[in-house]
Amino acid sequence: MTASPTTLGALQGVAAAFTDAGQTSTGEAVLFWVLAPLMVLGALGLLLARRAIYGAMGIVFVMISLAVLYIAQEAPFLGVVQVVVYTGAIMMLFLFVLMLVGVDASDSLTETLRGQRWVGVIFGVGLAAVLIAAVTRVTYPAPTGLAVPNADSNPVGVARIIFGDFIFAFEVVGVLLITAAVGALVLTHRQRLTRRIGQKERSDSRVARLGQGEHLAPLPAPGVFARTNAMDVPALDPYGEPIGRSVSRVLRVRGQEREFEEFAAGLDDEEGGGTVGVPLPPAGAPGETTGPTTTITTGRGSEVQP
């Protein structure tokens, strides 16, 4: 941890100030001293983590710990809402975006804004100076606790403040958020230029193209278990002809479909047709496989092999 001794000293001072006023119980102090260093580590994780997900997890950890501290300080409503809103909704959206960006995306280190690093460092140092100055010099009045505002339970107290003293600010924030949401909707809205093609239209067009090689029923399964136990052998139609579509499109594109001729030749052999071809493998002993023993064309990849 690279936190400077002054920061730690300041934190110690804060904790001591509360303890001296007699308002902080031992349990709360222990909780603070366990959680605070971990939270600092989590916050540093956001800065230093190479992968974006670890950064996000760092924030999640800090948020939850913060909520625990709120609850310990008699503000259960704030703590729980912090978890529901920030951890449950907002960070979840961040994660959503991170996952959509890519499974393995790590930050690009090329800077698009020139000199932003130095500006950032200057502002960071300035902020740190202000914070340290404020934390070390400020004098605290004796803490009064939340017993009076929490008299009718904490949510009621919060409601009185929000919907009583700060109702105007609350409404303004609400209007702002709704404006933002509507603005996002308007900016991302796309005018539909063509007719929407839904499931109904698709099925209609398939029926219309029925004569031109379109089929309504699901594709036939490959000839698995009919004569072989491989996926790459096409099924047979009632006339004994191979159905090419029954083999997976992926196998067909890769050229891994098994040649039907060799297979058909074996069929004819069995039925006494007399066509010269690859004979069917002999039946194995019980418990032994009689899988294909012929060379299978497995596409371009197989050519390099001996």
């Binding site: 909520a67 259960p76 978890v83 529901v84 449950g88 909704a89 949510p155």
Partner: peptide, 13 residues
């Protein structure tokens, strides 16, 4: 006083 919100919170986590 916020038990049900707490439930929503832990479900969200």
């Amino acid at each position: 006083p916020v038990a049900v919100l707490y439930i929503l919170g832990v479900t969200a986590i």
